[in-house]
């Protein structure tokens, strides 16, 4: 494409936007809302996703032991564990278990004094050092360890991780539907904005055709216009999202009792992807409205 054409197309697109400021501003506003919802959803989803994966990665297991464990039992467990990607993080004796329970009970710790014998089992805490989400490894390990004499029971947090992953699956589907709707909404907005500028330029299009413009020459400025609008909508939405994110992270304390929730903002790659997507939506939107116009 000749450079003169390129300059003309961009200038024309800018002119379209300037001369239809109000329409564009309203369109931009609505589109920002649509994109903002979409981006916010992506942000939440990405965070939840990485959080679940994190949980799957650092799966902890508790190996409960019968009675007062003998050194030999612990050694045989350790030997067994050598074959697995695990590390032992803690040994909790019956005494330790009771102590920590007392601590948790605080003032009501007196209740425990009535017990003749310490009913709490000793346990070994282990952490699996590789991602086992959707893996049968934890189950295998559980059955193997439970076969060892002196091991009472093995419990692990896999069950709720699996449940959580099922929920994430549902969230993903909802997100897909929801995202699809927002996508259509943005498309609809751009289609109509560009359609309005096309109509406001009807006379000009006619004259351009009469003095020898090709269809392509007439159409390209509108495609540029739609793409710019999509890009602007996407950018503004991301900026707003980022500001909201910063406000939340600095003003609100997100530590909910047990753990502080760390929300990570979208990665640069994701941001680029979203911007590209919004420009493409703009492009498609104007293609649709041009198609309608040129068929009439």
């Amino acid at each position: 494409m000749k450079i003169t054409f390129f300059r003309y197309f961009v200038r024309q697109a800018m002119r379209n936007m300037a001369e239809n400021r109000l329409v564009h501003l309203i369109g931009l506003g609505t589109m920002v809302i649509a994109f903002l919802m979409f981006d916010a959803f992506i942000l939440i989803f990405v965070n939840l996703n990485s959080w679940t994966q994190e949980q799957g990665r650092s799966l902890t297991m508790s190996i409960y032991l019968k009675g007062e464990p003998e050194r030999a039992v612990i050694e045989s467990i350790k030997k067994e564990l050598l074959q697995y990607p695990v590390s032992i993080t803690d040994f909790i004796s019956k005494e330790d278990a009771l102590k920590s329970l007392r601590k948790q009970l605080g003032e009501k710790a007196g209740l425990l004094d009535g017990l003749g014998e310490n009913p709490l089992p000793a346990s070994l805490e282990i952490v699996l050092s590789r991602d086992v989400s959707g893996d049968s490894l934890p189950y295998e390990l559980k059955t193997t360890l439970e076969r060892i004499n002196g091991v009472d029971e093995v419990q692990y947090s896999q069950e709720w991780v699996e449940k959580f992953q099922a929920i994430m699956g549902a969230v993903r589907i909802i997100g897909l539907v929801f995202g699809g709707l927002l996508f259509l909404a943005a498309l609809f907005i751009i289609t109509n904005t560009v359609k309005l500028t096309i109509y406001s330029r009807k006379d000009e299009i006619e004259i351009l055709k009469l003095v020898g413009a090709t269809n392509r020459f007439v159409k390209i400025p509108f495609l540029v216009e739609g793409s710019i609008q999509g890009f602007l909508g996407g950018s503004v939405a991301l900026i707003v999202l980022f500001l909201v994110y910063v406000a939340i992270m600095t003003k609100v304390d997100l530590s909910i009792g047990f753990a502080s929730l760390d929300i990570i903002f979208l990665s640069p790659q994701f941001i680029l992807l979203l911007l590209l997507m919004s420009s493409i939506i703009g492009f498609i939107g104007s293609t649709v409205s041009l198609g309608r116009f040129f068929r009439i």
């Binding site: 001369e19 006379d203 004259i207 055709k209 009469l210 003095v211 020898g212 413009a213």
Partner: peptide, 19 residues
């Protein structure tokens, strides 16, 4: 379009762009 570039037309109603 290439044909129309070789034909100049003065329209009855001029068809000028007012803006």
């Amino acid at each position: 379009s290439s044909l129309r570039r070789r034909i100049g037309v003065v329209f009855q109603d001029f068809k000028l762009l007012p803006l």
